[in-house]
Amino acid sequence: MNKLSVLKITDLTKRYYNKTALENVSLDFEQGKIYGLLGPNGSGKTTLMKVVAGLHKQTSGSVLINDEMLSYKSKAYVSYMPTENYLYENFKVIDILKYYNTMYEDFRYDYAVNLLNDIDVNSDIKISNLSSGQIGKLKTVIALSRDAQIYMLDEPLNGVDVLSRDTILDLIAKSHSENKIIIISTHLVSEIEKILDTVIFLKEGIVEVFGDAEELRQERQLSVEGIYKEVFRNA
């Protein structure tokens, strides 16, 4: 049975003066799946996510969410976790949660507060006093505490200690449901591949591979990490 395609990207191109970050990228994202957006630095993963999140404007091509052109309204359906630390440094953790609760109708405040215990982050601490690992975990909690249709997590395991990575992966898996899309970009392919349904390999802004993770494993007799190394050798 075909699942509903909630996010449709067609011939998406993003050019800068001296570089093409994305070139004619066409992808359909179906509900109920976890997508791995994989590629080396500069392959266009973050640019793709930022275009869908409305933070960058494409040079050409279209992005449809629920069959509607991307606009500020789409941001109500998309929960994006940037790889950078974007949180207000002079806010406490609890202030950040209150901000999200105010700005997003789908933010689950109590759920977020409970998750803070799971990730061992004190709600009364200022963002500027958190370690990079704690900020990484907090960003993921904030993003996943929204009841969004599309989650995009850019390098959610970056800077996070080994023990906490399992907590993050558990959170991601818990957020997975039949009517949601989760898109994860990461370099830590081996750690994330166990939860991926579909993988997308981006190389210099072009989609090199797009397919079901299990089918690719069987076809190439390699793990997703092995396929990654094969595709991006010499990249």
Binding site: A53, G54, L55, Y72, K73, S74, K75, A76, Y80, P82, E84, N85, Y86, L87, Y88, E89, Y99, M103, Y104
Partner: peptide
């Protein structure tokens, strides 16, 4: 600055 994402990711028109 990256903190601008806090504002521009919200579902508010320009």
């Amino acid at each position: 600055k990256k903190t601008g994402y806090m504002l521009f990711m919200t579902p508010n028109s320009g």
